[in-house]
């Protein structure tokens, strides 16, 4: 096994845009990456081309801008909806992006945002009805897990802690 010098690990992690997560679409035609550069990029597996790109938004009040990032937090995780239409991301809040309309669809507020906690993991259930996330907020040393039932058409949601 190769031994990798510490300086290489530090140098490469520092100088390159860090990839925080990768998620395949349910139909296995695309994958999405999220990064410290506060963007989501979607690639077509067959053509190897970048087909969608979203810059993170902050608080859901503004639509993304292609060249300007206005979010303060890196995107730590991203997941697909089972119909391959939406990508859900986690940073300061949870954001849903609609790949069909190529626009931001919904913001689900992080309940611990004011305390400086960010979303670390987010996932949609295979039936598309439930969204779970964790944040840096800890309960007895463990991440708190929230279950969310988003109403994509109405924009409302209910939340329960588990």
């Amino acid at each position: 096994m190769k031994v990798r010098p510490l300086f290489e690990m530090i140098f490469l992690s520092f100088i390159k845009g860090r990839i925080n997560s990768l998620a395949f679409s349910f139909d296995s035609q695309y994958f999405a990456t999220s990064s410290d550069d506060k963007s989501i990029k979607v690639f077509d597996i067959k053509t190897k081309e970048l087909v969608h790109q979203f810059s993170a938004i902050d608080g859901g009040k503004k639509i993304f801008f292609p060249l300007v990032t206005i979010s303060q937090a890196p995107i730590l995780d991203a997941s697909w909806s089972p119909d391959n239409r939406y990508i859900v991301t986690g940073n300061t809040d949870i954001q849903l992006y609609d790949l069909q309309t190529k626009s931001h669809a919904m913001t689900l507020e992080n309940p611990h945002k004011k305390e400086g906690n960010t979303i670390t993991e987010v996932i949609i259930s295979p039936n598309g009805k439930t969204l779970c996330f964790t944040s840096t907020k800890k309960y007895k040393g463990y991440p708190e897990i929230y279950r969310l039932d988003p109403n994509l058409s109405g924009g409302s949601s209910s939340m329960t802690s588990s």
Binding site: I15, K16, G17, S35, D36, D37, S39, K41, T69
Partner: peptide, 14 residues
Amino acid sequence: TFIFRDIHESKTFV
């Protein structure tokens, strides 16, 4: 194997 290099930016100006 196909390698995707330099996918994300190294630094973002906020």
